[in-house]
């Protein structure tokens, strides 16, 4: 009987907290939907640039699942490779096939090489070629998937933990009544928000430093760019997590409800951050990624760590991160009106 009483009490609590109920029942469906959208996209067709190529070969290549484009010179193909409009280019001289890969994504490398390997096999019409010469613009044949995913994961965890901690501590400020007391002093609303940003900012700097140092020096993650630039990226990403966490916390009444936001607002960012190839995603879904801080953070981190890009290339990512943080800061100042009108 006591057990029945307990069971009923728990049911009643759930019925009173419809959000928790909805989370338990619906969130898994939501996450599974996202995953299916990510993985059920059409298989990735490598984009290959051709410079000089015998017609027979390019015709054969065209029968594979690839997108082909022609370039007049190695120089123009190289610049296309650099701005990632193609994944690789091939050139053919005196029976020697030269392949140059963009190289930052091991799975794309593999797809390109698989398709090109077929060309070099002997057929009835011609004999075998010499072994193709393969080179990489970034990365190398020894680059692992971890090197490719690594930067995204650094960004994700930096984001995730700052989000959680900031969200919960700002929530506590509200639930323990200290926010009311704080707002009963002449402090301005924006001072509260900036105080939080700066106060936690110091810890995010330490976190950014630790996480990048650990990944590069201890885990041996590939790192071709400058550590300083990487730190700036991590810092700005954490800043967006901080302001975003504070904002989200105003829609939660308990730590538990903050947790409920994780599958809704944090996990999806992981899918859109480049962990999976979003080029195969439905276009209407792809624009979602432009609203997600992690998308910019991960893109910048990959550019720095794998491609060794400097601040002028990733500047646009940093700008978006900064803008998102500013938007959340303003939203936080506005939401504080809920607790004090002036």
């Amino acid at each position: 009987m006591r057990i029945r009483a307990l069971v009923f009490r728990i049911w009643r609590q759930f019925l009173h907290d419809k959000r928790t109920l909805a989370l338990m029942l619906l969130a898994p469906l939501f996450v599974m939907t996202l995953i299916s959208l990510v993985f059920n996209g059409s298989t990735y067709k490598p984009k290959i640039g051709l410079i000089t190529m015998p017609t027979a070969l390019s015709q054969r290549l065209a029968t594979e699942s690839v997108t082909l484009s022609s370039y007049a010179s190695p120089a123009s193909a190289l610049s296309a490779l650099k701005n990632q409009s193609i994944d690789a280019y091939v050139d053919f001289h005196h029976g020697q096939l030269t392949i140059k890969l963009e190289g930052s994504d091991p799975s794309t490398n593999q797809a390109v090489l698989m398709d090109l390997q077929k060309l070099t096999q002997p057929t009835t019409t011609h004999q075998a070629f010499k072994q193709p010469m393969i080179s990489y613009l970034y990365g190398s044949a020894s680059m692992t998937s971890f090197d490719n995913f690594g930067p995204v994961l650094i960004g994700f965890f930096a984001f995730f933990f700052v989000f959680l901690v900031a969200g919960i501590s700002f929530l506590n400020e509200r639930t323990t009544g200290t926010l009311d007391r704080l707002l009963a002093t002449p402090i301005k609303r924006y001072e509260v928000v900036l105080g939080y940003v700066l106060g936690y900012g110091v810890f995010t700097i330490v976190q950014a430093f630790l996480i990048t140092w650990f990944s590069v020096d201890i885990l041996g993650m590939m790192m071709t760019g400058s550590l300083f630039v990487l730190l700036i990226v991590t810092l700005l990403l954490s800043m967006s997590a901080l302001t975003f966490g504070m904002f989200i916390s105003s829609f939660a009444n308990s730590e538990f409800q903050i947790m409920q936001f994780i599958p809704i607002v944090v996990v999806p960012q992981l899918f859109f951050s480049g962990l999976f190839n979003i080029a195969t995603m439905a276009p209407w879904l792809r624009w979602l990624s432009y609203l997600m801080p992690l998308y910019y953070g991960a893109d910048a981190m990959r550019n720095v760590m794998i491609r060794g890009k400097s601040i002028d290339v990733i500047g646009i990512d940093l700008l978006f991160l900064l803008a998102l943080s500013l938007v959340f800061i303003v939203l936080n100042v506005v939401t504080l009106r809920k607790y004090r009108k002036v």
Binding site: T176, G177, T178, D180, R181, A184, T185, P186, K188, R340, K341, V342
Partner: peptide, 20 residues
Amino acid sequence: PRREMLSKIGYMAQSDALYE
């Protein structure tokens, strides 16, 4: 309400509102 006037007021809320 006016923010500047809050400096004249000492407010003790019903909850203790302390940083534990």
